[in-house]
Amino acid sequence: MASIFTKIVNGEIPSYKIAEDEHYYAFLDINPNAIGHTLCIPKQEVDKIFDLSEEAYIGLMRFSRKIAIAIEKAIPCKRVGLTVIGLEVPHAHVHLIPLNEMDNMNFKNKQQLSSEEFQEIVKKIQAEL
């Protein structure tokens, strides 16, 4: 059965898409730790990040770097943190989280945003790509 992320890539589930290319897709986390929290995924469904081929892994990191630079320009923050946990969805993914304090990396602290706020964040980040 396809993961929720594969369904997002295939357009079966809506997302707040930041960017995509032939192999990777970036979208806002709908339960963000901080405003601008973005997920970067390979379009190829692979459960664990280290099960990606070396080429796909390096490609995902290159794609994530591009998105992180845009986030840092668009969202006021001290830096953009990167984490890979991979327990909640069986599809390799990178979390890019704007950081102003260490608690922004705590997955127990979630932001509540409206659809309009998500759409505005997308526009800000896309403008920096």
Rank of each mutant, 00 (worst) to 15 (best):
L129Y: 06
K66I: 04
F27C: 06
V94L: 11
M102W: 12
L39V: 08
Y57F: 13
S3A: 07
E128R: 05
H23R: 14
M105P: 00
Y16W: 08
I71L: 05
Q126K: 15
F5Q: 05
R79L: 06
A74L: 09
F63M: 09
T83K: 13
G81L: 01
H95T: 05
R79Y: 05
K73H: 14
M61C: 15
Y24F: 15
M1Y: 11
A26R: 02
M1G: 15
E72Y: 06
E88G: 14
Y57L: 15
D29E: 09
A26M: 02
E72V: 00
D29A: 05
V9H: 02
S114H: 13
E12C: 12
G36C: 06
P90W: 02
H37W: 06
P32D: 11
E128K: 04
I13E: 10
Y57N: 08
Y57M: 09
E72G: 04
D103I: 12
V9G: 03
G36N: 03
L82N: 11
D47L: 10
K73I: 12
F118C: 05
K108R: 15
P32T: 06
T38M: 07
I41S: 02
Y57A: 11
E88Y: 13
G81T: 03
F63T: 02
K108G: 15
E22N: 15
T6Q: 10
D29Y: 04
I125V: 07
K124M: 10
N31K: 15
